[in-house]
């Protein structure tokens, strides 16, 4: 005799459980955690370098960077003097909650207020794995074409912000920038859009201001918790 047994569980409920615990810890310790996602080469590491370069040395920021192989990105980021760990995933095309949990064993979360995670270069798989972050940020460079939000809608739907990178290259590519933005807004009407170039520095102030706003809201919660 065969029986159908209802289960109704998330397939990735184990990852979801870990991500939920991480999110709770980030909230309790007042750490803003951001998950940066893009195709390989869109400029995640470069944007992080520029960001760290603008920070005071006493900023309580730490970084995790994921790649299939090599410690290159961690080396690039370590130059700025903030704690960095490379997560080498081997053959896994995304970071998952367990990897973050394991990496955080080496750090005192209470000593941080910003954790920046660079995911493995991939526009598809990272969108399925919650890392406990406060927000996902998707980067898309002007050389990748305006249709990507329509081809990879999941990540654009789940990201609070789309950062359009490498706008210094606009004169050299036949990209319809307005169409790219319209495509992102079609799949996610509320998505915020920031355009910048890490080469010329154009738009970096807008990115830093966005970051500061998100950090302010965490600081406000901290003040409320103390008073």
């Amino acid at each position: 005799m065969t029986t159908v047994v209802p289960v109704e569980k998330k397939v990735l409920h184990e990852n979801q459980r870990i991500a939920g615990e991480l999110r709770k810890r980030f909230e309790e310790q007042h750490v803003l955690c951001l998950n940066l996602i893009s195709a390989p080469g869109s400029g995640k590491t470069t944007l992080l370098e520029k960001t760290l370069n603008c920070f005071q040395k006493n900023e309580k920021v730490a970084l995790l960077t994921g790649d299939l192989q090599t410690e290159n990105d961690a080396r690039r980021l370590a130059v700025y003097g903030f704690p960095v760990q490379q997560i080498v995933t081997g053959s896994v095309c995304h970071l998952d909650g367990k990897m973050i949990e394991r990496a955080l064993e080496k750090w005192e979360l209470a000593a941080l207020d910003l954790l920046l995670i660079e995911n493995v270069g991939n526009l598809v798989c990272p969108s399925s794995y919650d890392l406990g972050e406060a927000a996902k940020i998707v980067l898309l460079s002007v050389t990748e074409g305006e249709d990507k939000p329509l081809k990879y809608p999941s990540i654009f739907v789940k990201s609070d912000v789309m950062v359009i990178t490498k706008i210094d290259l606009l004169p050299y590519v036949s990209l319809n920038l307005e169409r790219m933005k319209a495509n992102a807004r079609q799949v996610h009407p509320g998505i915020e859009i920031i355009e910048l170039s890490c080469k010329t520095g154009d738009g970096l102030d807008v990115w830093l201001a966005w970051l500061e706003r998100r950090r302010d809201s965490v600081r406000e919660r901290l003040l409320c918790a103390r008073s």
């Binding site: 005799m1 065969t2 159908v4 109704e8 569980k9 999941s154």
Partner: peptide, 17 residues
């Protein structure tokens, strides 16, 4: 606003007893 369509849900299992 998105209400659903991003789920990855294990609905049920069928077993032989």
């Amino acid at each position: 606003r998105l209400l659903g369509g991003d789920e990855l849900q294990l609905a049920s299992v069928e077993v032989e007893e």
